[in-house]
Design a protein around this nucleic acid. Structure first.
Lengths: 181, 181
DNA sequence: ATTCGCATGTAACTAGTTACATGATTTA
DNA sequence: TAAATCATGTAACTAGTTACATGCGAAT
């Protein structure tokens, strides 16, 4: 049982999903490739923390829907009550920013402009995702205890961080004597 | 040559360091254990991207100071001009936040209070670090082109993110009907 | 024509963590 | 007297990435 195992369990509490769906939904707080997810799901099913159902589709490949079991929910609940490990971040952009003394203005400008463009796109998509969650909850913000609450607050956090990243990039552009984007 | 290799080169551009120092300084943008750093430094030295000098000390263990070579600087510069890979974050806290529907109010309160306390400590330390960088630069903010510039902006980013994390936690406490910290 | 989305899996590899190993000095 | 700081290294393991493998339907 590693971090990814618990991340999968946590997402399956909200709703049963295929491995493919899980891989996409994980992006908010834990990045994992399908090659890591599929074998792990099988292992969690072996341990009876999940069950699965094959769903046949027409025009699309068949899929396997995973369901969390009561044991899975118990294991997750116990783990969730313990203090979390420190977060890990690895961001090549920050190494490049740290090494900026080796660059010229053009390189620096491109580095920060690209970063801003990326986070402008992702924050825009995030705002729509959050609007979608509220819509799913009948136009009301999900409350503590509701299944969507965790997802709602985690996407809001990510949005704040994306917006703060853009603000910081613009602050740096200012230090470089360049206009904000 | 992986991300960590470039992170080490980037830090050695600013000043020659021991592996021990590097491990501590990396924390801002790339977390790595000494067991990964020491063998990598040796490998980078083999490839002539670094050189080293043994420094004998009294009262403390001896240390090995690494210096970046011109080749190392070239390799880093070339890499820095290419678009960075997407950032990776893995944060157990966010899994626990996502799974909050399984928790009671007391558990949620503890989770968020602990998170706030942690980031209040680390942001306070960060403010002092930034003040220290400015002091090192004769009381002036480092300018683009100066060796300290990258370090200055990266610590400022981290501080912004730490403050935003606290703000978000307090926003969540509000949703839970609890007072901010 | 080619790429994208849907969908699942395995094999080979690289990156990262935990534990082992040592040892003096300082601080709580 | 227990823990933290300084300091470097290796061995065994776990986690994560890249590449291989397949294949239809829709959009560009």
């Amino acid at each position: 049982m590693n971090g990814l195992s618990y991340a999968l369990l946590a997402m399956l509490v909200r709703k049963p999903c295929s491995g493919y769906e899980l891989a996409k939904m994980m992006e908010v707080f834990w990045q994992a490739k399908h090659s890591q997810i599929y074998p792990l799901l099988a292992k969690l099913e072996d341990q009876s923390l999940l069950t699965s159902e094959n769903v046949e589709q027409t025009g699309k490949p068949n899929k396997k829907i995973y369901y969390i079991t009561d044991t899975g929910r118990d294991i997750l609940k116990t783990w969730a009550s313990k203090p979390p490990a420190l977060p890990v971040t690895r961001d090549e952009f920050l190494i490049k920013a740290y090494a900026l003394s080796l660059s010229n203005l053009q390189m620096a400008e491109r580095l920060f402009h690209d970063r801003i463009a990326y986070y402008q796109h992702s924050s825009e998509a995030r705002r729509q995702k959050i609007a979608g969650i509220i819509e799913e909850c009948g136009g009301k913000v999900p409350q503590f205890g509701e299944l969507q609450f965790g997802r709602y607050i985690v996407h809001n956090r990510k949005l704040r961080m994306e917006e703060e990243e853009i603000a910081w990039c613009n602050w740096v552009l200012g230090l470089l004597g360049l206009p904000a984007k």
